[in-house]
């Protein structure tokens, strides 16, 4: 049985831990609000972009753009794995990395790109130490997204990869985030028009294009890829803070439970010591009076 002093020390250290986790929880709560605001600000752009793309798709019958055609036969699949930069967020990063590992099992020669430091470390462990990597949590996420997009686009056009797949976090709700694996290129028409069908579609028929629908499309498709990456980065970021909020909340609660438990143990031990001492005094007194 640990002594009263041991228990007191343990409670003190647990209280310190609890303070830290509580602070981290509050920080996560503040950051998620900001991340969500950034996501919300990006939404009008996303809506407008998919509407334009949809109108274009309706206007052109056959499109001669590399993104619309299957990639080079036999080339490996390119996979972009997005995770957070930091841990302390429960199974959040682990789940994303597991999704990537599963993907690697079915596509053994897949070429990986990573966004996020945890993703970088995981991909290095998975046997690609020299892959292209970017951090997730930077102020200029749009610039990063543009970098990633231009690199993978180049690889795709050069025939180094046959597909572009993205593994990123989807923020289902504040308490639920799950990995999502999506194929971005070759571009499938349904991906852009999903949202638009719900709204009843844009203008059909006589649309003027300057100079031609093909040209506008050749500008729009890369922009769409870029922006998909950008908004996925925002969502992964927001999901990370949500996961961290939950993890830190649990940690704070667990610390509280341990403190309660240790406090009871400490009180028991103290009471036991007092009882023992009393017994000794009483026993001693009786022994003296009995003689």
């Amino acid at each position: 049985m640990p002594s009263v002093k041991d228990l007191r020390d343990r409670i003190r250290s647990m209280k310190n831990t609890q303070q830290i986790t509580k602070a981290m929880k509050q920080v996560a709560a503040a950051k998620i609000r900001r991340a969500e605001a950034a996501q919300k600000q990006a939404r009008p752009y996303a809506d407008a972009l998919s509407r334009m793309l949809n109108d274009l798709m309706a206007a052109v019958s056959s499109v001669d753009h590399p993104f619309m055609k299957p990639g080079r036969q036999g080339a490996p699949v390119g996979v972009i794995l997005m995770t957070a930069d930091k841990g302390l967020c429960g199974a959040f990063n682990g789940n994303l990395i597991r999704a990537a590992e599963q993907f690697q099992k079915t596509h053994p020669n897949a070429v990986f790109y990573s966004v996020g430091i945890k993703a970088r470390n995981a991909i290095r462990r998975m046997g690609q130490p020299d892959h292209a990597t970017w951090p997730l949590n930077v102020p200029t996420k749009l610039a990063t997204a543009q970098d990633v997009a231009s690199l993978v686009t180049q690889a795709f056009v050069d025939g180094k990869i046959s597909e572009i797949v993205l593994i990123s976090a989807k923020l289902v709700s504040m308490i639920s985030q799950r990995p999502e694996t999506r194929r971005l290129v070759p571009f499938s028409q349904s991906a852009a028009s999903e949202a638009e069908h719900a709204k009843g579609g844009g203008a059909k028929g006589a649309v003027e294009f300057a100079p031609s629908p093909e040209f506008v499309l050749s500008r729009l498709l890369p922009k769409y890829l870029e922006f998909t990456l950008f908004s996925s980065m925002l969502e992964t970021d927001a999901s990370f803070f949500a996961a961290q909020l939950v993890a830190m909340n649990n940690a704070t609660e667990n610390a509280g439970k341990l403190i309660d438990e240790y406090t009871i143990q400490m009180n028991n031990a103290r009471q036991a010591a007092i009882t023992k001492e009393l017994l000794e005094i009483v026993g001693g007194a009786e022994a003296l009076s009995g003689s």
């Binding site: 334009m52 274009l56 203008a203 003027e208 300057a210 100079p211 629908p213 506008v216 500008r219």
Partner: peptide
């Protein structure tokens, strides 16, 4: 990309880079 373009209300549907 083709030059300056001014658009008023009731312009025909138009899309350009």
């Amino acid at each position: 990309t083709e030059g300056e373009e001014g658009i008023l209300a009731k312009h025909a549907p138009f899309l350009a880079a």
